[in-house]
């Protein structure tokens, strides 16, 4: 491990690729032990893996955003009580008890971080990306949000107020991004395809389809 330590210190964001085989073996060994002891049912484990891999993720959040863009009554319910408005889609689960939706507008930009761990609105976004969990993102976003956003490709003029949400207690936050220009006649289903996870964390804006935003 001695040689690996120095590598890690130079490059924290790459932790997951620096240690490929060792954790894999340890996880496998623990899994076998827990199954052997009757503590874990292997079928139940496969059900969980399938769910986290295929059924929970940012497509859920994108549906919520698209609905809010086309339905102003829904948007109001979403801003008033995120948890119950999101539950209208059947999305619920861990870290979803107090979901608070914060709206980006031409004058206010919201961005999410968790400085203490990696709190994240799982029911709408799934599990967080590695960069969101990096020590650098967690430490710098609170003190230098404009610098971090700029580094991630989003330059905001100084007259746009930046609000940082350090979601480390009981509530989880979720950004309702701005609807891009030129989408007035776009259907709700097509709008949902424009919404990326990063726009719901608040580190990017939803690209206009005319600017090549559809991927």
């Amino acid at each position: 491990m001695g040689t690996k330590l120095s590598q890690h210190n130079h490059d924290n964001a790459q932790d997951y690729t620096d240690v490929p085989s060792d954790p894999a073996l340890r996880v496998k060994a623990l899994e076998s032990l827990l199954i052997e002891k009757g503590l874990v049912d292997p079928v139940a484990l496969d059900v969980l893996v399938d769910t986290f891999e295929n059924r929970v993720g940012p497509r859920n959040g994108a549906q919520v955003v698209a609905r809010a863009w086309v339905d102003s009554a829904y948007k109001q319910r979403l801003l008033d009580d995120g948890t119950s408005a999101i539950a209208e889609f059947g999305y619920s689960g861990g870290q979803g008890e107090k979901l608070t939706v914060v709206e980006n507008t031409p004058s206010v930009h919201n961005v999410l971080v968790c400085t203490l761990c990696s709190c994240y609105p799982w029911p709408v976004l799934g599990l967080p990306p590695t960069w969101y969990k990096s020590a650098a993102y967690r430490s710098r976003t609170v003190i230098d949000p404009r610098g971090v956003l700029s580094e991630l490709g989003l330059d905001l003029p100084n007259d746009v107020e930046v609000r940082v949400w350090d979601s480390n207690a009981t509530s989880r936050y979720f950004v309702l991004p701005e609807r891009p220009k030129g989408t007035e006649s776009t259907s709700e289903a097509d709008l949902a395809t424009l919404v990326t996870r990063d726009t719901m964390i608040g580190v990017a804006k939803v690209a206009s389809p005319s600017l090549g935003g559809v991927s």
Partner: peptide, 17 residues
């Protein structure tokens, strides 16, 4: 504390383990 290592639309899981 190092680099953010941002990658657009990066997946939540990288390795099966």
């Amino acid at each position: 504390l190092g680099e953010i290592g941002y990658r657009e639309n990066e997946p939540g899981f990288h390795e099966p383990w």
